[in-house]
Amino acid sequence: MDAAAASRARASLGAIFKVFLTAGAISFGGGVIAYLRQYLVAANGWLDDDDFLDALEISETLPGLNSVNMSVIVGDRMRGTIGAAVAVAGLMLPGICVMMTLGVLWERQRHNAEINGFLVGVAAAAVGLLLTVTLQLGHKQFVRPLDLIVMAAIFIAVSLFKVSLIWVLLVAGPIAVWLYRPRGPVETAERFVHLRDRLHSHRAHWRH
């Protein structure tokens, strides 16, 4: 802890900016997180792995892009508000330059049939990418019955009934948190299953 705190103090704003600028320049399609872990935890030791995973969990729960939230949290833990600002600026700067260039070029060329064909193919490939990211991020949720029910309800409400996102979040958010409340039904059921498993293993033990 002391060692981590000491090296955290050593992370200069310039060094933070450089790491996030590189992350922003070379990562595509959700690769930012893996890169940050490599550089912040493994290479520089600015954060320990628990801190990193903790920050990732918070980033996923809060609204906003994971990579941007992650930069805010990590920058803040290293150098406070200014560290967070420097991290986000570094992360976004390369993308902003490329995006604006592409945007201006596209405005001029958007009736070009070949460019349109290319962009449709990119979007189709992105569907495969988004599905992969969703499946990987939700690997725990896809095997829990209650989570599957919540997920299906959300999907049906948004995609089939076109319910406004505000209403979906205002209604489903409190319900889901209430279901998972401390000592609520889900936690009680899980504790029961846990106790039953322990009982079974004890019985098996006694039989031998």
Binding site: E60, T61, L130, V133, T134, L137, G138, K140, Q141, F142, R144, L146, D147, L148, V150, M151, A152, A153, I154, F155, V158, S159, L165, V168, L169, A172, G173, A176, V177, W178, L179, Y180, V186
Partner: peptide
């Protein structure tokens, strides 16, 4: 834990 399935459901949408 409560927000996770909501986020995944929205990503599927």
């Amino acid at each position: 834990r409560g927000m996770a399935p909501i986020a995944i459901g929205l990503m599927l949408s």
